[in-house]
């Protein structure tokens, strides 16, 4: 409990220090208001947008896009990873594709999806899922291949049928690695969402930031950065909490 409180204090303190530094740099007049608006101006802007509801609308749009793509990547990646670990044909077909797709910059396919699907929610979710699926698949596969055979044998001799092994043993055993893959995929999903929104316009925060930039509205641009940074922080911390909750049984929880 003290650890969690300490972390919260630490984060708050860091943010406060950053704000103070920002305030004095902006007030020093070294940069024009256009290049570096004061934190007060940006805060006022965020509050204005919050009161009018604009922030929540665009934030909701961004988070829904990111999490939909992320969830799709999680489901497909988990299925693909387990399939590759356990079914020879699936492994044969997907192994070269995944080993090429994993390190490739998936964002290069964004214009392709825009061409195929159009500049809409569906194409944004598709590119996010496409970007995030590979780490999940690779990590899940490694986990599923690492399940000890004695675990499977024990389950069999305790009356588990071959068909039930997947749900009873393989899936729970694979959870730690799958979560690791998801933790790699989440920042990727966020980065991709922002770029996709900037490129396709739309109502998300990325689109709003690019609009603000076009109108040389620098408080708007900075407000976008602050909101998206806070969102990223919350989502990634939430993921860490989920991991701790789910892995109470795991060695890392004991330490």
């Amino acid at each position: 409990m003290i650890g969690r409180l300490g972390r919260a204090l630490e984060a708050t303190g860091t943010v406060l220090v950053l704000l103070v530094v920002w305030h004095f740099v902006a007030a020093s007049g070294a940069f024009s208001d256009f290049l570096l608006p004061s934190p007060e101006a940006v805060a006022a802007r965020i509050i204005d947008d919050a009161l009018s509801g604009d922030v929540f609308a665009s934030l909701a749009r961004t988070v829904v896009t990111a999490l939909t793509g992320f969830a799709a990547a999680g489901l497909v990646g988990a299925a693909l990873g387990i399939g590759m670990a356990r079914v020879r044909l699936v492994r044969w077909f997907f192994d070269p594709l995944v080993s090429i797709g994993y390190p490739m910059p998936k964002i290069a396919f964004l214009p392709v999806f825009l061409l195929w699907i159009g500049p809409n929610f569906a194409s944004q979710v598709t590119i996010v899922a496409f970007s995030a699926v590979f780490p999940v698949a690779v990590a899940t596969r490694a986990g599923a291949e690492g399940v000890e055979r004695t675990l499977l044998w024990s389950a069999r001799s305790l009356g588990t049928s071959a068909g039930q092994l997947l749900w009873q043993i393989v899936l729970p055993a694979v959870v730690p690695q799958m979560l690791t893959g998801l933790q790699v995929a989440l920042p990727v999903a966020l980065i991709t969402t922002i770029v996709a929104e900037m490129l396709t316009g739309g109502d998300g925060i990325g689109g709003a930031m690019l609009g603000a930039m076009r109108f040389a509205d620098s408080p708007g641009v900075f407000a976008g950065i602050i909101v998206i940074a806070a969102t990223g922080f919350v989502l990634i911390r939430t993921m860490e909490v989920i991991r701790r909750r789910m892995l109470r049984w795991h060695a890392e929880a004991a330490s």
Binding site: E148, T150, L151, W153, S154, A155, I169, P172, A173, V175, W249, H250
Partner: peptide, 9 residues
Amino acid sequence: FQSFALFPW
């Protein structure tokens, strides 16, 4: 088994 093979979860 030697490795216990308990279900750790």
